[in-house]
Amino acid sequence: MKLTVVGCAGSFPSAESPASCYLIEAPYEGRTFRLVVDLGSGALGDLQRYVDLRDVDAVALSHLHADHCFDLSGLYVVSKYHPDGALPRIPVVAPEGAAERLAEAYGIDEPVGMTEQFEFLAHADGEPVRLGPFSITPRLVDHPVTAFAMRIASDTHTIAYSGDTGPTDVLVDVAAGADIFLCEASFVESGANPPHLHLTGADAGTVATRAGVGRLLITHIPAWTDRAEVESDTKSTWDGPCELVSAGSTYTL
């Protein structure tokens, strides 16, 4: 498996990074299967640095906030109107109602919406979906909208992704024994943080320690947040391999 951080800015694109978007690749049936996990604001442009958009095989969306899903509109344009002809329909696994919400955001009339280009599949808590070489198990987490963490496993390796969430024991199950735990840390311990919204680095480190992960990757840090403080918070509860990701970072398992 190969993980590429396309975008990692928290809540909105920064000057250095698009919002959340991750490319996960693995061999499958004699070729490379390419799964895009989240496609937030500004991500579609940078995604093209790493993959021809015609070669995207599937998309998985953690939730329907703009910084995690709105650039699916751009992918729809590419898929439907490419000068070489419309691209094959691909699966998009996402929270219930994604097809209607994203079609409305783009301005497409129902009932067709985006379904000519995307096969929308609804997350069901704890029920895995098979996309190419990956088994994706979504788990409902703690956020103001319906949101899912995801455990993405191939035959040999596992990447756990927190999505956006407040502290919840569900993350320990999602991340248990994962090679990589890609976890948000939007808040700092010194802040007056509202509940049921995001994690601190210390929260992420606690989950990583309890879950026994191989490597902790911290993501979704807003542009206004001090990365050094997030790192310090994380190291207060986690003493294993750790990195605050940047756009363009790659990790191979």
Rank of each mutant, 00 (worst) to 15 (best):
T225G: 00
S41L: 15
H220L: 12
T237R: 13
P111G: 06
A192W: 12
M150A: 12
S14I: 08
T156H: 12
T168M: 04
Y161H: 15
H63C: 14
L61E: 01
D71H: 08
S17G: 01
D67K: 05
P27Y: 11
K235S: 14
A60N: 09
A178F: 03
H68I: 09
A176D: 10
G191I: 09
P138F: 04
D142T: 09
F187A: 05
T219K: 07
G177L: 01
K2D: 10
A124L: 14
A66V: 15
R210C: 10
S236H: 07
V59E: 00
A147D: 01
T146I: 12
F187S: 02
A103M: 00
I180K: 08
S73R: 12
T168G: 03
K235H: 15
F148M: 14
D84K: 13
G10S: 04
D38T: 10
L197Y: 14
Y50I: 03
G45L: 14
E116M: 08
S41C: 15
T146S: 11
S62N: 12
H143M: 00
L244K: 08
A66G: 13
R101T: 15
E231P: 03
F12I: 14
G166A: 08
Y50F: 12
A211L: 02
L244V: 14
V37A: 04
D164P: 06
M1C: 08
A149E: 03
G214V: 04
K2W: 07
L64C: 02
H65L: 09
I218V: 14
D169V: 11
V112I: 14
T158Y: 00
T206C: 13
L121P: 00
E243L: 12
W238M: 07
R49K: 13
G214K: 06
G74M: 00
S73D: 11
E119R: 11
S186F: 14
G240N: 04
R227D: 02
I159E: 03
L47F: 06
V170W: 01
L72N: 01
A185K: 06
R34F: 07
F12S: 14
R101S: 11
T225I: 14
R101D: 09
L61R: 04
